[in-house]
Simulated scan of single mutants.
Amino acid sequence: MALAQYEITDQVAIVTINNPPLNALDVPTKLAIEEAFLELDRIRDQMRAVVLTGGGEKAFVAGADIKAFVDLEPESAKRRLMRSHKVYEVVESFHWPVIAAIHGFCFGGGLELALCCDVRYASRDAQFGFPEVKLSIFPGNGGTVRSQYFLGLGRFKEMVYSGETISSEQALQYGLVEKVTESGQVMDAALELAHKIARRGPLGVAAAKKAINRNRDLPLQQGLEVESDLWAGLSLSHDMKEGAKAFIEKRKPKYLGK
């Protein structure tokens, strides 16, 4: 079985990480995730949203492959991290929204991967944490950057410095996840959102993702320029005209993605 595989149904792709028992992010698994998303990008017209989840019952992703740390030196560690950053960027910048469906353990690199997704839904049994300091390291797969988009600085430092685990309810309270479901129902909730997104104007959804991701690090005036350029670019599309006409005529729009 592939370490990461995908299927597409009704314009929604499901990417499943399969590295039992805990879906640890060793190098082959990271590369498999990257390849799955690159393949999906080549056939992006077949989908409108993606759900990312972990195979098995124990974990979304429980973290990194610790055995590989023993032989690392500064040069090899830097290469490893930079390569990981590229993998995570492929997920974060994917053309369509990516929804993480999280169950079980979501630790370290797994939580960093989840933060690359646009939306995170968690099962009530999910557990979250940055336990890296227990190994005398810290989150190095983008965690010290992306976490600050979601957590207050003090809360983030508390999680990193203590290495302690939090529940899904705490993750919801902190802003790490957007919804908590009953155990066994997180995939249904994620797919419900994905199918809802798939019914919306695809050009508008893709442009919105691009604007949001670009603008979060830009000063206000630069962000407004990016926003206005992307919005104005939609004005020549069939879908923008169709959306307006359908609203006026009180009917469902028929979007063509062009």
Rank of each mutant, 00 (worst) to 15 (best):
A190T: 02
Y88F: 15
D118A: 04
G109I: 05
E89T: 15
A194F: 04
G163S: 08
R155C: 08
V98L: 06
E164G: 09
K86L: 13
F156P: 05
L115H: 14
A126C: 06
F128D: 04
S168F: 02
A211Y: 04
K210L: 12
V91H: 00
E92Y: 07
E192I: 00
V90G: 02
P139V: 03
G152R: 13
I212L: 13
L193E: 09
V87F: 05
K134Q: 13
G104M: 00
S168D: 05
K134F: 12
H95E: 15
I197L: 11
K210M: 10
E192R: 11
G204D: 12
A114R: 04
V177Q: 00
G163A: 05
V119L: 11
M187K: 02
A101C: 02
R120A: 13
Y149M: 15
R155H: 11
E178I: 01
I99Y: 04
G152N: 15
E89A: 14
R214N: 11
V186G: 00
D188A: 10
E132C: 09
P97Q: 05
L115T: 12
R124F: 13
Q170E: 15
D125H: 05
N215D: 09
D118N: 10
E182H: 11
M159G: 07
Q170I: 09
G109R: 06
E158M: 10
F94M: 06
D188L: 04
L113R: 00
E89K: 13
G154A: 14
F94V: 05
S93E: 12
P139S: 01
E164N: 14
G163Q: 08
T165E: 11
G175R: 03
G140L: 07
K196G: 10
A189C: 01
V98M: 03
A207F: 07
D217E: 13
R124K: 15
V205L: 12
K210Q: 13
G140S: 07
A171L: 03
L220P: 03
F107Q: 03
G129D: 04
E112M: 10
A171G: 09
H195C: 05
D125K: 07
I99P: 02
K134S: 15
A171S: 07
F107G: 03
R216S: 10
K210P: 07
S93P: 02
V87W: 02
V186P: 01
V160R: 04
F130K: 02
E112V: 09
D217G: 15
P131W: 06
C116D: 04
G129H: 01
A211I: 14
L151C: 07
R200G: 13
V87P: 02
V91F: 01
F107A: 02
R200F: 12
C116K: 03
A101T: 01
N141G: 13
L172N: 01
K196W: 12
A207E: 13
G163V: 06
I212G: 04
A126F: 01
E112Y: 08
E178D: 09
L191K: 08
I212R: 10
V87E: 04
L220Y: 05
V160T: 07
R155L: 09
G201C: 15
F150N: 11
E132A: 09
S136M: 12
P131K: 06
G175H: 06
R120E: 00
D118M: 00
G204Q: 15
R146S: 15
S168Q: 00
L218K: 08
R214H: 12
R216V: 15
K179D: 05
F138N: 02
L111V: 06
S183A: 14
A207W: 08
V98A: 05
